[in-house]
Nucleic acid binder design. Structure first.
Length: 415
DNA sequence: TCTGGGGTCCTAGGACCC
DNA sequence: TCTGGGGTCCTAGGACCC
Protein backbone atom coordinates (compact mmCIF):
# COMPACT_ATOMS: atom_id res chain seq x y z
CA UNK A 1 0.00 0.00 0.00
CA UNK A 2 1.20 3.49 -0.81
CA UNK A 3 2.08 5.76 2.04
CA UNK A 4 0.37 9.13 2.45
CA UNK A 5 2.80 11.83 3.44
CA UNK A 6 1.95 15.41 4.40
CA UNK A 7 4.38 18.28 4.28
CA UNK A 8 3.14 21.05 6.58
CA UNK A 9 4.65 24.44 5.86
CA UNK A 10 3.79 27.45 8.03
CA UNK A 11 2.85 30.44 5.89
CA UNK A 12 5.19 33.35 6.53
CA UNK A 13 6.13 31.71 9.80
CA UNK A 14 8.01 34.37 11.75
CA UNK A 15 5.71 37.14 10.65
CA UNK A 16 2.44 35.38 11.29
CA UNK A 17 3.63 33.96 14.61
CA UNK A 18 4.68 37.41 15.73
CA UNK A 19 1.42 38.94 14.46
CA UNK A 20 -0.72 36.30 16.10
CA UNK A 21 1.10 36.77 19.40
CA UNK A 22 0.68 40.53 19.31
CA UNK A 23 -2.98 40.34 18.42
CA UNK A 24 -3.56 37.96 21.33
CA UNK A 25 -1.89 40.49 23.64
CA UNK A 26 -4.22 43.26 22.49
CA UNK A 27 -1.92 44.77 19.89
CA UNK A 28 -3.68 47.35 17.74
CA UNK A 29 -2.39 46.41 14.33
CA UNK A 30 -2.16 42.97 12.81
CA UNK A 31 1.27 42.85 11.16
CA UNK A 32 -0.19 40.56 8.49
CA UNK A 33 -2.51 43.27 7.21
CA UNK A 34 0.07 46.05 6.77
CA UNK A 35 3.41 46.22 4.95
CA UNK A 36 5.71 44.72 7.57
CA UNK A 37 8.80 42.59 7.94
CA UNK A 38 10.65 40.65 10.59
CA UNK A 39 14.25 41.70 10.35
CA UNK A 40 17.45 42.21 12.27
CA UNK A 41 19.07 45.30 13.61
CA UNK A 42 20.48 47.52 10.92
CA UNK A 43 22.81 49.35 13.28
CA UNK A 44 24.35 46.04 14.26
CA UNK A 45 24.68 45.18 10.57
CA UNK A 46 22.18 42.37 10.75
CA UNK A 47 19.85 44.18 8.45
CA UNK A 48 18.13 41.63 6.31
CA UNK A 49 14.50 40.64 5.87
CA UNK A 50 13.69 37.30 7.54
CA UNK A 51 9.97 37.32 6.68
CA UNK A 52 7.59 39.74 5.00
CA UNK A 53 3.82 40.22 5.08
CA UNK A 54 1.75 39.83 1.93
CA UNK A 55 1.13 43.62 1.72
CA UNK A 56 4.94 44.05 1.92
CA UNK A 57 5.45 41.48 -0.83
CA UNK A 58 3.27 43.65 -3.09
CA UNK A 59 6.03 46.27 -2.88
CA UNK A 60 8.50 43.63 -4.07
CA UNK A 61 9.94 42.97 -0.62
CA UNK A 62 11.27 39.46 -0.11
CA UNK A 63 13.23 37.32 2.33
CA UNK A 64 16.98 37.88 2.21
CA UNK A 65 16.79 41.45 0.98
CA UNK A 66 18.59 44.15 2.97
CA UNK A 67 16.38 46.24 5.24
CA UNK A 68 17.73 49.36 3.60
CA UNK A 69 16.48 48.26 0.22
CA UNK A 70 13.16 47.16 1.70
CA UNK A 71 12.68 50.62 3.23
CA UNK A 72 13.44 52.22 -0.08
CA UNK A 73 10.68 50.17 -1.71
CA UNK A 74 8.22 50.99 1.05
CA UNK A 75 9.10 53.94 3.32
CA UNK A 76 6.22 53.23 5.73
CA UNK A 77 7.43 49.68 6.33
CA UNK A 78 6.88 48.31 9.83
CA UNK A 79 10.05 46.53 11.04
CA UNK A 80 9.99 44.07 13.95
CA UNK A 81 13.09 42.34 15.35
CA UNK A 82 12.91 38.54 15.58
CA UNK A 83 11.99 36.74 18.80
CA UNK A 84 13.35 33.23 18.36
CA UNK A 85 12.16 32.05 21.73
CA UNK A 86 8.56 32.68 20.69
CA UNK A 87 9.12 30.93 17.34
CA UNK A 88 10.46 27.81 19.00
CA UNK A 89 7.35 27.65 21.16
CA UNK A 90 5.10 27.98 18.10
CA UNK A 91 7.06 25.27 16.31
CA UNK A 92 6.79 22.95 19.31
CA UNK A 93 3.04 23.56 19.45
CA UNK A 94 2.67 22.53 15.80
CA UNK A 95 4.70 19.35 16.31
CA UNK A 96 2.58 18.52 19.32
CA UNK A 97 -0.70 19.04 17.48
CA UNK A 98 0.46 16.82 14.62
CA UNK A 99 1.55 14.17 17.10
CA UNK A 100 -2.04 13.82 18.27
CA UNK A 101 -2.85 12.42 14.79
CA UNK A 102 0.21 10.25 14.07
CA UNK A 103 3.38 9.27 15.90
CA UNK A 104 5.34 9.67 12.65
CA UNK A 105 6.09 13.40 12.73
CA UNK A 106 9.44 14.76 11.58
CA UNK A 107 10.42 18.35 12.26
CA UNK A 108 12.27 19.42 9.15
CA UNK A 109 12.94 22.97 10.27
CA UNK A 110 11.48 25.50 12.67
CA UNK A 111 8.51 26.03 10.36
CA UNK A 112 8.15 22.77 8.42
CA UNK A 113 7.14 19.23 9.34
CA UNK A 114 6.57 15.95 7.57
CA UNK A 115 3.88 13.60 8.83
CA UNK A 116 3.21 10.06 7.68
CA UNK A 117 -0.58 9.88 7.95
CA UNK A 118 -1.09 6.52 6.26
CA UNK A 119 -4.20 4.94 7.78
CA UNK A 120 -5.03 8.00 9.87
CA UNK A 121 -8.24 8.97 8.06
CA UNK A 122 -11.30 7.36 6.48
CA UNK A 123 -12.08 9.78 3.65
CA UNK A 124 -9.62 11.27 1.15
CA UNK A 125 -6.12 12.58 1.88
CA UNK A 126 -7.07 16.05 0.66
CA UNK A 127 -10.16 16.21 2.86
CA UNK A 128 -8.08 15.16 5.86
CA UNK A 129 -5.46 17.80 5.02
CA UNK A 130 -8.17 20.47 4.84
CA UNK A 131 -9.49 19.49 8.26
CA UNK A 132 -5.97 19.55 9.67
CA UNK A 133 -5.39 23.05 8.31
CA UNK A 134 -8.57 24.24 9.97
CA UNK A 135 -7.58 22.65 13.25
CA UNK A 136 -4.15 24.33 13.17
CA UNK A 137 -5.68 27.66 12.32
CA UNK A 138 -8.31 27.54 15.06
CA UNK A 139 -6.13 26.08 17.81
CA UNK A 140 -2.82 27.79 17.08
CA UNK A 141 -3.87 30.95 15.29
CA UNK A 142 -1.80 30.69 12.10
CA UNK A 143 -2.24 29.19 8.65
CA UNK A 144 -0.24 26.49 6.90
CA UNK A 145 0.08 24.97 3.46
CA UNK A 146 -0.14 21.20 3.27
CA UNK A 147 1.45 19.24 0.44
CA UNK A 148 0.03 15.76 -0.02
CA UNK A 149 1.78 12.87 -1.76
CA UNK A 150 3.21 9.40 -1.34
CA UNK A 151 6.76 10.66 -0.68
CA UNK A 152 8.43 13.45 1.25
CA UNK A 153 10.02 14.91 -1.88
CA UNK A 154 6.74 15.34 -3.76
CA UNK A 155 4.80 16.42 -0.67
CA UNK A 156 7.35 19.15 -0.05
CA UNK A 157 7.20 20.28 -3.66
CA UNK A 158 3.39 20.34 -3.55
CA UNK A 159 3.21 22.47 -0.41
CA UNK A 160 5.06 25.22 -2.25
CA UNK A 161 2.63 25.47 -5.19
CA UNK A 162 0.56 28.48 -4.15
CA UNK A 163 0.12 30.19 -0.80
CA UNK A 164 -1.29 30.80 1.73
CA UNK A 165 -3.67 28.42 3.52
CA UNK A 166 -3.91 25.76 0.81
CA UNK A 167 -3.84 22.01 0.31
CA UNK A 168 -2.06 20.73 -2.81
CA UNK A 169 -1.67 17.18 -4.05
CA UNK A 170 1.12 15.87 -6.25
CA UNK A 171 1.17 12.15 -7.00
CA UNK A 172 3.64 10.11 -8.96
CA UNK A 173 1.14 9.70 -11.80
CA UNK A 174 0.88 13.49 -12.17
CA UNK A 175 4.54 14.30 -12.74
CA UNK A 176 4.09 15.03 -16.42
CA UNK A 177 1.50 17.77 -15.90
CA UNK A 178 2.45 19.16 -12.49
CA UNK A 179 6.18 18.54 -11.96
CA UNK A 180 8.17 18.33 -15.17
CA UNK A 181 7.12 21.78 -16.48
CA UNK A 182 8.49 23.52 -13.33
CA UNK A 183 11.69 25.58 -13.67
CA UNK A 184 14.72 23.57 -12.67
CA UNK A 185 15.45 25.80 -9.69
CA UNK A 186 12.24 24.49 -8.09
CA UNK A 187 13.92 21.11 -7.79
CA UNK A 188 14.85 20.19 -4.24
CA UNK A 189 18.62 20.44 -3.61
CA UNK A 190 19.19 22.80 -6.52
CA UNK A 191 20.63 26.01 -5.16
CA UNK A 192 22.21 28.97 -6.86
CA UNK A 193 25.47 27.32 -7.94
CA UNK A 194 23.99 24.14 -9.32
CA UNK A 195 21.25 26.07 -11.06
CA UNK A 196 23.80 28.21 -12.91
CA UNK A 197 25.62 25.07 -13.97
CA UNK A 198 22.44 23.31 -15.10
CA UNK A 199 21.46 26.38 -17.11
CA UNK A 200 24.81 26.52 -18.82
CA UNK A 201 24.33 22.87 -19.79
CA UNK A 202 20.94 23.71 -21.31
CA UNK A 203 18.54 22.33 -18.71
CA UNK A 204 15.60 24.64 -18.04
CA UNK A 205 12.86 22.52 -16.48
CA UNK A 206 12.70 19.61 -14.08
CA UNK A 207 11.54 17.50 -17.02
CA UNK A 208 14.71 18.38 -18.96
CA UNK A 209 16.75 16.85 -16.14
CA UNK A 210 14.40 13.91 -15.63
CA UNK A 211 14.69 12.83 -19.25
CA UNK A 212 18.49 13.08 -19.29
CA UNK A 213 20.74 10.04 -19.14
CA UNK A 214 21.76 9.74 -15.48
CA UNK A 215 25.25 8.67 -16.56
CA UNK A 216 25.74 12.06 -18.21
CA UNK A 217 24.60 13.91 -15.08
CA UNK A 218 26.99 11.80 -13.09
CA UNK A 219 29.79 12.89 -15.40
CA UNK A 220 29.03 16.55 -14.71
CA UNK A 221 28.06 16.40 -11.03
CA UNK A 222 29.50 13.17 -9.70
CA UNK A 223 27.25 11.32 -7.22
CA UNK A 224 25.29 14.52 -6.72
CA UNK A 225 24.23 14.16 -10.37
CA UNK A 226 22.46 10.90 -9.60
CA UNK A 227 20.63 12.54 -6.72
CA UNK A 228 19.52 15.37 -9.00
CA UNK A 229 18.29 12.86 -11.55
CA UNK A 230 16.28 10.80 -9.07
CA UNK A 231 14.80 13.93 -7.50
CA UNK A 232 13.81 15.14 -10.97
CA UNK A 233 12.06 11.81 -11.53
CA UNK A 234 10.19 12.13 -8.26
CA UNK A 235 11.94 9.11 -6.77
CA UNK A 236 12.14 9.20 -2.98
CA UNK A 237 11.57 6.37 -0.55
CA UNK A 238 12.96 8.03 2.55
CA UNK A 239 10.89 7.41 5.66
CA UNK A 240 9.41 10.08 7.91
CA UNK A 241 11.70 10.00 10.90
CA UNK A 242 10.16 11.08 14.17
CA UNK A 243 11.98 14.03 15.64
CA UNK A 244 15.46 13.10 16.71
CA UNK A 245 16.52 15.55 19.35
CA UNK A 246 20.18 14.62 19.39
CA UNK A 247 21.81 17.34 17.33
CA UNK A 248 24.92 16.54 15.26
CA UNK A 249 26.44 19.89 16.07
CA UNK A 250 25.78 23.05 18.01
CA UNK A 251 27.06 26.40 16.87
CA UNK A 252 26.65 30.13 17.11
CA UNK A 253 27.93 32.92 14.98
CA UNK A 254 27.62 36.67 14.71
CA UNK A 255 28.41 39.60 12.52
CA UNK A 256 30.29 42.07 14.69
CA UNK A 257 29.07 45.67 14.98
CA UNK A 258 32.37 46.75 13.43
CA UNK A 259 35.11 44.78 11.68
CA UNK A 260 37.75 43.50 14.11
CA UNK A 261 41.07 45.00 13.09
CA UNK A 262 43.08 42.69 15.35
CA UNK A 263 42.59 39.34 17.13
CA UNK A 264 42.34 41.22 20.43
CA UNK A 265 39.24 42.98 19.14
CA UNK A 266 37.65 39.70 18.10
CA UNK A 267 38.33 37.75 21.30
CA UNK A 268 35.41 39.13 23.36
CA UNK A 269 33.01 38.12 20.59
CA UNK A 270 34.63 34.73 20.36
CA UNK A 271 34.27 34.29 24.11
CA UNK A 272 30.63 35.29 24.00
CA UNK A 273 29.98 32.74 21.22
CA UNK A 274 31.85 30.03 23.14
CA UNK A 275 29.66 30.74 26.15
CA UNK A 276 26.45 30.50 24.11
CA UNK A 277 27.45 27.31 22.33
CA UNK A 278 28.87 25.55 25.38
CA UNK A 279 25.86 26.47 27.48
CA UNK A 280 23.60 24.90 24.85
CA UNK A 281 25.90 21.88 24.78
CA UNK A 282 25.63 21.41 28.54
CA UNK A 283 21.88 21.96 28.46
CA UNK A 284 21.64 19.16 25.89
CA UNK A 285 23.69 16.93 28.19
CA UNK A 286 26.46 16.48 25.63
CA UNK A 287 30.18 16.92 25.13
CA UNK A 288 32.06 17.74 21.94
CA UNK A 289 35.17 16.25 20.36
CA UNK A 290 35.52 18.83 17.61
CA UNK A 291 35.72 22.60 17.88
CA UNK A 292 35.54 24.68 14.70
CA UNK A 293 35.93 28.40 14.26
CA UNK A 294 34.68 30.11 11.12
CA UNK A 295 35.68 33.55 9.97
CA UNK A 296 34.22 35.86 7.39
CA UNK A 297 36.51 38.69 6.45
CA UNK A 298 35.82 42.22 5.38
CA UNK A 299 35.92 41.16 1.72
CA UNK A 300 33.37 38.37 2.35
CA UNK A 301 35.73 35.48 1.91
CA UNK A 302 35.09 32.63 4.30
CA UNK A 303 37.43 30.24 6.05
CA UNK A 304 37.32 27.77 8.90
CA UNK A 305 39.71 25.78 11.05
CA UNK A 306 38.86 22.98 13.40
CA UNK A 307 40.51 20.84 16.01
CA UNK A 308 39.67 17.42 17.30
CA UNK A 309 40.30 16.87 20.98
CA UNK A 310 41.56 13.64 22.49
CA UNK A 311 38.70 13.69 24.99
CA UNK A 312 35.35 15.45 24.57
CA UNK A 313 34.68 18.64 26.47
CA UNK A 314 31.82 20.86 27.55
CA UNK A 315 33.93 23.43 29.36
CA UNK A 316 33.56 27.04 28.28
CA UNK A 317 37.15 27.75 29.20
CA UNK A 318 38.61 24.88 27.20
CA UNK A 319 36.42 25.64 24.20
CA UNK A 320 37.40 29.29 24.32
CA UNK A 321 41.12 28.51 24.59
CA UNK A 322 41.02 26.23 21.55
CA UNK A 323 38.85 28.69 19.63
CA UNK A 324 41.36 31.45 20.20
CA UNK A 325 44.18 29.28 18.85
CA UNK A 326 42.11 28.38 15.78
CA UNK A 327 41.24 32.01 15.21
CA UNK A 328 44.92 32.97 15.47
CA UNK A 329 45.82 30.34 12.87
CA UNK A 330 43.50 32.03 10.41
CA UNK A 331 44.47 35.62 11.17
CA UNK A 332 46.22 37.01 8.10
CA UNK A 333 45.79 40.67 8.88
CA UNK A 334 42.50 41.10 7.02
CA UNK A 335 39.82 42.67 9.27
CA UNK A 336 37.17 40.15 10.40
CA UNK A 337 33.49 40.84 9.77
CA UNK A 338 31.87 37.79 11.34
CA UNK A 339 32.93 34.85 13.51
CA UNK A 340 31.31 31.57 14.44
CA UNK A 341 32.02 28.74 16.85
CA UNK A 342 30.70 25.26 16.19
CA UNK A 343 30.86 22.17 18.36
CA UNK A 344 30.52 18.76 16.70
CA UNK A 345 31.52 15.17 17.20
CA UNK A 346 28.96 15.19 19.98
CA UNK A 347 28.65 12.48 22.54
CA UNK A 348 26.43 12.00 25.57
CA UNK A 349 27.79 13.51 28.73
CA UNK A 350 29.16 10.63 30.82
CA UNK A 351 31.41 10.50 33.84
CA UNK A 352 34.47 12.66 33.40
CA UNK A 353 37.72 11.03 32.71
CA UNK A 354 40.07 11.78 35.55
CA UNK A 355 43.54 12.67 34.42
CA UNK A 356 46.38 14.75 35.76
CA UNK A 357 44.13 17.79 35.57
CA UNK A 358 41.15 16.10 37.14
CA UNK A 359 40.79 18.63 39.89
CA UNK A 360 41.02 21.57 37.56
CA UNK A 361 38.42 20.02 35.27
CA UNK A 362 36.08 19.42 38.19
CA UNK A 363 36.51 23.00 39.27
CA UNK A 364 35.68 24.31 35.77
CA UNK A 365 32.71 22.00 35.57
CA UNK A 366 31.31 23.31 38.84
CA UNK A 367 31.87 26.88 37.71
CA UNK A 368 30.08 26.32 34.38
CA UNK A 369 27.22 24.57 36.13
CA UNK A 370 26.87 27.39 38.60
CA UNK A 371 26.87 30.05 35.87
CA UNK A 372 24.26 28.10 33.87
CA UNK A 373 22.05 27.80 36.95
CA UNK A 374 22.23 31.50 37.80
CA UNK A 375 21.50 32.47 34.20
CA UNK A 376 18.57 30.13 33.90
CA UNK A 377 17.08 31.56 37.08
CA UNK A 378 17.70 35.27 36.61
CA UNK A 379 18.09 35.61 32.86
CA UNK A 380 21.04 35.26 30.54
CA UNK A 381 22.20 38.82 30.85
CA UNK A 382 22.42 38.90 34.64
CA UNK A 383 25.92 37.47 34.69
CA UNK A 384 28.54 38.59 32.21
CA UNK A 385 32.27 38.18 31.89
CA UNK A 386 34.13 41.42 32.36
CA UNK A 387 35.80 41.25 28.98
CA UNK A 388 32.47 40.76 27.23
CA UNK A 389 30.67 43.65 28.95
CA UNK A 390 32.76 46.51 27.59
CA UNK A 391 33.40 45.04 24.17
CA UNK A 392 29.98 45.63 22.63
CA UNK A 393 29.71 41.87 22.11
CA UNK A 394 26.22 40.55 22.53
CA UNK A 395 25.94 38.70 25.81
CA UNK A 396 24.76 35.12 25.84
CA UNK A 397 21.49 34.95 23.90
CA UNK A 398 18.88 36.70 25.95
CA UNK A 399 15.81 34.54 26.18
CA UNK A 400 12.42 35.95 26.90
CA UNK A 401 9.78 33.82 28.49
CA UNK A 402 6.59 34.39 26.61
CA UNK A 403 3.84 31.86 26.40
CA UNK A 404 2.40 31.28 23.01
CA UNK A 405 -1.27 32.33 22.89
CA UNK A 406 -3.99 29.69 22.77
CA UNK A 407 -1.60 26.95 23.86
CA UNK A 408 -1.92 25.53 27.31
CA UNK A 409 1.39 25.55 29.19
CA UNK A 410 1.19 21.80 29.80
CA UNK A 411 1.11 21.24 26.05
CA UNK A 412 4.27 23.24 25.60
CA UNK A 413 6.01 21.43 28.40
CA UNK A 414 4.79 18.01 27.48
CA UNK A 415 5.55 18.16 23.77
C1' DT B 1 20.80 46.05 -3.13
C1' DC B 2 27.15 45.58 0.15
C1' DT B 3 24.58 40.41 1.60
C1' DG B 4 21.93 36.80 8.99
C1' DG B 5 22.17 32.77 11.51
C1' DG B 6 21.45 27.85 12.39
C1' DG B 7 22.11 23.56 10.50
C1' DT B 8 23.49 19.01 7.30
C1' DC B 9 26.13 16.40 4.03
C1' DC B 10 29.80 15.56 0.57
C1' DT B 11 34.46 15.67 -1.35
C1' DA B 12 39.35 16.10 -2.03
C1' DG B 13 43.72 15.78 -0.26
C1' DG B 14 47.08 14.65 3.24
C1' DA B 15 48.72 11.80 7.07
C1' DC B 16 49.24 7.53 8.77
C1' DC B 17 48.89 2.55 9.20
C1' DC B 18 49.48 -2.10 7.49
C1' DT C 1 63.89 2.56 1.89
C1' DC C 2 61.08 6.18 -2.44
C1' DT C 3 58.29 2.00 -3.74
C1' DG C 4 52.50 -0.13 -4.15
C1' DG C 5 47.82 -0.34 -2.74
C1' DG C 6 44.04 -0.11 0.44
C1' DG C 7 41.78 1.61 4.47
C1' DT C 8 40.75 5.11 7.86
C1' DC C 9 40.94 9.42 10.06
C1' DC C 10 41.27 14.29 9.87
C1' DT C 11 40.82 18.90 7.88
C1' DA C 12 39.24 22.59 4.82
C1' DG C 13 36.06 23.99 1.85
C1' DG C 14 31.87 24.00 -0.77
C1' DA C 15 27.27 22.94 -1.64
C1' DC C 16 22.57 22.69 0.06
C1' DC C 17 18.43 23.45 3.31
C1' DC C 18 15.41 26.64 6.29
Amino acid sequence: MDRIIFHIDCNNAFLSWEASYRVSKGGEIDLRSVPSVIGGDREKRRGIVLASSYPAKKFGINTGMSLMEACRMCPSLNITPPDYDLYVKCSDALVHLLSTHTPLVERYSIDECFADVTGCFKDTPAAFADRLREEISSKLGFTVNIGVSTSKLLAKTASGFSKPDKTHELYYGELLEKYFPLPVNNLFMIGFRTCVKLYSLGYRTIGDVAREDPALLRKHFNLFGLLIWSNANGIDHSPVRPYEDRPKGIGNGMTMPADAESPMEAYPFLLSLCEMASQRLRAAGMRAYVISVGVRTKDFTHGSHQQKLSSPTQSTKEIYNVSRLLYNEMWKGVPTRAVSVRLSGLTADGAIQMDMNGNEELRQRKLDKCIDAVRSKFGDDCLQRARVIHSGAKPVAVTTHKDYPKIKPNILNGA
